[in-house]
Nucleic acid binder design. Structure first.
Lengths: 137, 137
DNA sequence: TACAAAAACGCAACAATGTTGCATTTAAAT
DNA sequence: ATTTAAATGCAACATTGTTGCGTTTTTGTA
């Protein structure tokens, strides 16, 4: 179990209060969080723009992956170094009621998807939509 | 080959200039179009809001399906009455360079995706990202 | 410890997408 | 021709996300 500071350092990112806080929240979250979700969850002081930029740098570094929910809002989830396996892309479940994003265990082989001649495949995103456990009571 | 007016009538939607024009553009488009794309493509006069509402009613009626591109912008594609087959969901290709959305022929069985106990599956969205033919020159 | 450079930050301003309320107009059924 | 529900136009607003720029902070090095 690595600490937030180690993760930042490992990716060449400077160690700041906000970044540690954001990482901590995301590591312990079991769902994808939006900018707004994070704004609410964070207890430290920060600027809107800085949070956007923080999320970008984390995404660029491969620490987070971004999922776009059905409203078009970006949500971020901590990605525990499964980047090596580019051929299998893991799927997300999006609840149509609460709009929350869950990471699924299941993964899909990119090579199975057929695309027209001349198209170059890069990544595969699989989103299952439906009703999550909590909303299904 | 049904005309735009028939399609509208069939779905209980009133027949207006804008709606016919939007339908016509979307039926002949081979890519998903955003609100902005449509604004540019349409030759009739219309209000921004009315176009948003038109797209919503088409989506509700099942005439269009909505795809969210990596920027979070909604794109709409004409769906030629394959609604009956809810078990297979067709995939989209999203170009990372030009951001255009292409409908793929391939389809995926919803039942093959495993979700945690208590989660109710509804639809499956598969998005392949990469570089399209035109951008791949 | 002090210093310098690069990175990160805060603020202001802006842009795009999408929504809501309300008064007016229009399509289509009687 | 009349009526009514649906569709429209307009104004105002909300949210998400971006850009530029001057200031502060982190971090490596002297």
């Amino acid at each position: 179990m690595k600490g937030e500071e180690d993760i930042l350092q490992q990716h060449g990112l400077k160690n700041t209060k906000l970044r540690k806080a954001v990482l901590s929240v995301l590591i312990h979250a079991e769902k994808g969080l939006s900018h707004q979700d994070l704004s609410r969850a964070l207890d430290v002081d920060f600027d809107r723009v800085t949070l956007f930029r923080t999320l970008h740098s984390f995404e660029d570094a491969g620490i987070l992956h971004k999922i776009i929910d059905p409203n078009g809002t970006a949500k971020y989830a901590y990605s525990a170094a499964d980047e090596a396996d580019k051929d299998h892309c893991h799927a997300h479940f999006i609840c149509l009621k609460c709009e929350e994003v869950f990471c699924l265990e299941d993964s899909f082989p990119l090579k199975d998807v057929k695309v027209p001649r001349g198209f170059k495949k890069n990544t595969l995103d699989v989103q299952v939509k439906g009703i999550c456990k909590e909303c299904n009571n």
